[in-house]
Amino acid sequence: MDNNIAQPPTRLQQTYDVIFRGVCRSSAVLTALLVAFIVIKITVAAMPAMRQYGVNFVTTTTWDPLTRNFGILPEIWGTLFTSFLALIVGTFFGVAAAIFLSEGLLGQFIFAVLKAVKMETNPFLSQLPDRLEGIIKNLIELLAAIPSVVYGLWGIFILIPMIRPACNWLCAKLGWVVFFGTPLSGPGVLPAVIVLSIMILPTITAISRDALVAVPPKLRMAAYGMGATRWETILAVILPVATRGIAGAVILAFGRALGETMALAMLVGNANKISLSLFSPANTLASLLANNFPEAGPQEVSVLMYASLVLLAITLVVNIIGAWMLQKAVGVGGGR
């Protein structure tokens, strides 16, 4: 009996091998073609509207199915305006959380407390700093796990009633500031921006944290060795080195904010207005699609496809720039 289990593959196994490799390869090709197919499908469906409305579609402001006048400038404005504001808020909190998580501030604080009460060698308590930091990291990731429609629900019933008195007070007292120009009568830009920034925060925190952790330790050591305080180190050394990674995170989060639909469809008010006011209702491309597609007639579908194409173009450009910057950031980190 042949005890050697190593043996050359039989003809049958070789045939299987060829077939399986073929199947793998075709799935991979399928995945790549899917993107192309989606773009082509939407473009083809948008063709009639593109021919009929041309560039006017993105420069005019009326949306009226009855008179067949379609323009999406307010939606483009609303999409960019809400995403941009959400990005500012989200970056502020997100990068702060990333610093908090990557610098071990909490861990060191708890360790100091434990040491003060002389409990730092207790087997359970000594793990506490790491554990707590892990918990906070998971909690921030949990923010991303909650479905956007639930955030929308929360926004309608909790957030809007909560911020409304403050907003209306601001409007009454500081109405001359263009951002507070109108009262908040219900859904509007501000609640949408708040919810949107909550939704993009985990993305920013996760990717920025990776960028901060990837900063070579010797840079940090060098800064401490020169006598810099922790914050001088962070602001003058670590953040500048991690800039590109953080910028990539911010741009990817921007792409996500642009495409976010449900929370905005529920909170932004769906009014075709171009306004700088934070409390006025507005509209975004994604929520325009969500609201109009279910009842669209054959003619309107083409118009909506055109709007989808505009959204697709904006998000694709933003995402590709973000992915490219992150790739560069990895290159820089590896080079040093």
Partner: peptide, 19 residues
């Protein structure tokens, strides 16, 4: 392509399936 799809707005997947 997979990375592009990661950042793909979910509503466009719906638009595609609709079409």
């Amino acid at each position: 392509a997979a990375k592009v799809l990661t950042g793909f707005p979910s509503i466009l997947a719906g638009v595609f399936a609709y079409g």
